[in-house]
Computed example of a mutant assay.
Amino acid sequence: MQPSELILTPEGKIYHLDLAPSQLAPTIITVGDPGRVQMVSKYFDTIETTAQHREFKTHTGTYKGKRISVISTGIGPDNIDIVFNELDALVNIDFEKRQVNRKLTSLDIIRIGTSGGLTPEIEVDSFVVSALGIGLDNVMHYYDKTDKIFNRDFAQSFIDHTQWNPDNSVPYAVEADKGLLKKLTSGKTIQGITITNVGFYGPQGRILRAKLKDENLNEKLTSFRYKRKKITNLEMETATMYGMAKLLGHRAVSMNAIVANRTSGSFSENASKTIDALIQYTLEKIAK
């Protein structure tokens, strides 16, 4: 692998994350906001590593004997492409030889993020575990061998129902890792289907000053059904996470703190409290 492809720092660390292989735990929590890293790591018993480069901040430590890394990805599918490739490189590429390891390692990656509900029953301050992500981004279409990881029937049903504009993208659907989904699900969570958008305003149907081509987009998302299943929430990372994880042989699940409901127009009165509660819930589930 040429230096332009596998980019390392002078200290031998992966470029964007600024981490050495020994500094990464096999269980990883991803958050969008770098400020949220400390919201997670404050519950750690120990912190052995801290690193930050641009929006990518990492704390690695232990929680109830479990070694965990919490990493901020920033916002959006493009950043997920960076983070997941570099996480994989840390465990599956020999940096000195610049070769793929003969024995590959699978990581457990759990997202703790914020999201907006799309149906009235997805109440503000609830927790949604994404059983499936629908990607409206184009990241996964740059990669080969995605046929085995995409749910083509689900995606086609979505395209047909929404009369999706092919100039926007080609929607795809990817399921969560079943083992992690089961582990993180309980009576305190809702299993849902999550839309992953490429932006916060226009792509999520928000109108401030710029007009939209399709002002009925969110209504189409809300009315979509596939085998009695419906879309519960929308955000900006989940589907790309699921696609990259499956492509590279890792396990991923997305935990969503619902801080807004787009149908009612409501927003959480204490979003930080909701996020903190989801962090504690997720850490306990991981520790078990």
Rank of each mutant, 00 (worst) to 15 (best):
Q2M: 12
E11F: 11
K13C: 11
Q23M: 08
A25D: 04
T27V: 14
T27M: 00
I29E: 05
V31T: 07
P34Y: 00
V37Y: 07
K42I: 03
Y43N: 07
T49V: 15
T49W: 11
A51V: 01
T58I: 11
T60M: 13
G61W: 14
I68Q: 13
S72D: 10
T73E: 12
I80K: 11
I82F: 04
N85I: 07
L87P: 15
L87I: 06
V91Y: 05
I93E: 14
I93N: 04
I93R: 06
D94S: 11
F95I: 08
V100K: 09
T105N: 13
T105I: 15
I109C: 00
I110V: 13
I110D: 10
G117E: 09
G117K: 04
S126N: 08
V129H: 05
L132E: 06
D137L: 04
D147W: 07
R152H: 12
A155V: 06
F158D: 01
F158R: 01
D160Q: 05
D160L: 01
N165A: 10
D167K: 11
V170I: 08
E175C: 14
T185Y: 02
T194D: 02
Q204P: 01
A210Y: 07
N216I: 01
T222P: 00
M236D: 02
E237M: 01
T238E: 01
T240F: 05
M241F: 07
L247I: 11
L247Q: 14
N256C: 04
I258Q: 06
V259C: 02
T263D: 06
L278A: 04
Q280M: 12
Y281W: 07
K285A: 12
